[in-house]
Design a protein around this nucleic acid. Sequence first.
RNA 1: GCCAAUGUAGCUCAGCCUGGCUAGAGCAUUCGACUUGUAAUCGAAAGGUCGUGGGUUCAGAUCCCAUCAUUGGCUCCA
Length: 625
Amino acid sequence: MRILQLHCDSIEFTPTKKEIKNAEENVSKETTRLEELVVAFVAVEKGDDSLVAKDAISQIKNSMDKIGCKKLLLYPYAHLSSNLASPSIAISLLKEMELLASDLDVSHSPFGWTKSYKIQVKGHPLAESSKVITKKETTFSGEPSKDEITSEALKSESKIKSFWYVLSPDGKMTPISDFNFSNHPKLELLSKYESAKKRSVDEPPPHVALMKKLAIADYEPASDSGNMRFFPNGRLIKSLIEQYVTARVKDYGGYEVETPIMYDSHHPSMVSYFNRFPARQYNIDSEGKQLFLRFAACFGQFLMANEFQLSYKNLPFRLYELTRYSFRREQSGELVGLRRLRAFTMPDCHCFCKDMNQSIDEIKTRFDLSQSVLGELGIEESDYEMAIRFTEDFYKENKKTVEDLVRKLGKPVLIEMWKEKFFYFVLKWEFNFIDSLGKASALSTDQIDVENGNRYGIDFVDENNVKTNPIILHNSPSGAIERIIYVLLEKAAFDSKQGRKPQLPLWLSPTQVRIIPLKDEFNDFCNTLAEKISSHNIRVDIDDRNDSIGKRIREAEKEWIRYILVVGEKEANSENLSIRDRKTGNVRELSFGDFIKEFKEQTRNKPFSGLNMPKLLSQRPQLMV
RNA sequence: GCCAAUGUAGCUCAGCCUGGCUAGAGCAUUCGACUUGUAAUCGAAAGGUCGUGGGUUCAGAUCCCAUCAUUGGCUCCA
């Protein structure tokens, strides 16, 4: 007996006509709809008997118990086997099974009828399984059926055996249980987080409140969970980070492209890649096509590279896209603020290399790039820990490469080693930010992919005029942009907790300079001053509201504005500016030129974009308190 | 997805356990007064489907059930 068991949101079936002579009688041709159930497609095979039926139903019940489902539909399905039992035996065994399951809400679809059906299968790991039950030895395989669009990777992941080590810059490899973490508390957190999955926190991450207070981003209840909206401040910050990362990747040699956000699940190049990953994508049906929203930039770039005429002389060749968005339908319980989203912005740079040596050179360059990009975004080496994951074979052949990466970082690194290759890559490294609650989130990452060149039919002609698949590196120098904002806010919250003033990097501050006129009569002067400052590409606004000076300063402080210029009698008649610097809380007097100079030194080489709200605060709606 | 907690005005929260006047406060908003010298000027007004849908009750923000969202834990993170 062969059974394909599916945990479904719903199924609808309609008997259309009799397929065989001794089909079930008295069948209604109405459509039957059932919800929240397990559908068992059953093919009864030659030699099956009551014992097999009994065994089958007990296995089905067993797994239904695990997933907490109490409704079962037995669906006769001949196409699972080429060795079918006779219809009469099949009917009787199916009836027997139905009877044995009568403690559940059980039903069956008519035997021997051609039926049309519509099914919606759930996306969790246990939703799909196939069973083969025979008389002699009853076997059970809880693995996802290979016939279905499902996840080979899920199967692999559950079987995957990882060996965990810490690799020090001096080349010493220590199993994590033996490593002395006393000087590396964050690495210890990462190790526990990754290997033992041990976490204990009971407060919400501080960035969630901050992203609202600073009017950066918020949940959008009208969308799906994990799809955020960005207010003008947030959009400005995000846009600047996007521009910066893109500029850096282009400097490094990436060529920017743009590719569709949705793909046909049945496109030949997609099927096998797609099936290797958990079914966590958004699906869209359109005119008979089953489309899915991309979860990375890989597809678009690979399909594009497939059409390139590449020679070894062109390699390494780098394609880059900043995906707005990539979509991953993470489980609802996994979503948190800006840390884990269902729609996120991901810089993704793929490098096609002619051989392993070239990819190893390249991966080192990209390591430096990633580290530098993070640093310029305000995320220091001490904020993150590195993990490197690879197959044992790769390590044996490229021990030095792994050690070089660790030496570059200059501190011990978490190592995960696999006996076999389960994923498409042989090595992957990533930087993990460890927040003040001990949570780890991956930022920059790079992978050495040895499968997708072949899978997507990407090839180049080598020195010997032979078509060869390139090795592909997958690098995100910063990780998701939203996650960068999360890190900056978490760092600020941590500063605040330690009694320091929280602050965003100056180049990312929505308002960089605020002018406060003491009385209305100075408004014109302030306007002129604002024009002058803003002509140097500085975001300056004016708090012209009718509030006390103390209050307006307090407001500016709450918005984390770095420079506050109060303008009164004295300033209006002087060449100098009175500058309140949030960093120190003190008021300084500086000439206009000196101030601009000081300012510009801090934002050098960073992108600029103008104010994203009215210049006059009196014209600004209150978005958040 | 599973388990738990939370959901009351634009925001932060009180009220809920023990059902009962017209559901309160601060901030924000509007109006008025004040014309301000470096982290909250004073007064008034307006603002609420108590997340949503059912149920119990003479009566539900309050008790019960379901559902949605957020947060935490589990799982997961290509």
